[in-house]
Amino acid sequence: MSNTQASNGAHARIYVVVFVALLALTIVTVSLSYLHLSVFPSVLLALIVASIKGYLVSNYFMHLISERRLIYAILVLTGIFFLSLIFLPLSHFHDRVG
């Protein structure tokens, strides 16, 4: 077996571990919804679990864990604009409540 094949084999094992973790976290997500928590903790917990799953998919399946600096720069810029979009309606909510 060549070094490349051995390295690919190691990658494949990591992908299987990530797959199992994603399935387990899906069970966690659904189980949390049966606790019928109030809005804030249920949103917070659901987003935390979804973010962990997103981290696993983007870092391992999409190889972001070992990507070039330019790709990170693109994603940081995207992240800033994305968060602006998400927090824009929240500021409206606070205005309304205040």
Partner: peptide
């Protein structure tokens, strides 16, 4: 989908 699922179905 990982984000759509809890946001639409579970919250």
């Amino acid at each position: 989908w990982i984000f759509l699922f809890p946001v639409l179905y579970l919250l």
